[in-house]
């Protein structure tokens, strides 16, 4: 499709975002919108779930919302 591949949902990309600042699941989903990656909603959810489990980021409650982040 013409719009696919603009953004890639990779471990490296997730790692980069979480190293910059704490993010909620919704923040991460915004970075990997389906219209930018060309992935389906299900594929996006599954990939992010697997990557987050593998990266095992720190968790922090900010304004009552769970945020993930990675230390340098």
């Amino acid at each position: 499709t013409p719009n696919s591949g603009e953004v890639q949902l990779t471990e490296e990309a997730v790692r980069r975002y979480l190293s910059r600042k704490p993010m909620t699941t919704k923040d991460l989903l915004k970075k990997f919108q389906t219209k930018r990656t060309g992935l389906s909603s299900d594929a996006t959810v599954n990939a992010l779930a697997q990557l987050l489990k593998r990266l095992d980021p720190e968790r922090k409650l900010i304004a009552d919302k769970m945020h993930f982040f990675l230390k340098e």
């Binding site: 699941t25 909603s41 996006t44 959810v45 992010l48 769970m66």
Partner: peptide, 20 residues
């Protein structure tokens, strides 16, 4: 749409249930 984003966030959080 924002409702699709909400659904995806809910699905992702469900996948991460044990983890979170």
């Amino acid at each position: 749409s924002s409702s699709e984003a909400d659904e995806m966030a809910a699905a992702l959080e469900a996948e991460l249930n044990d983890f979170m």
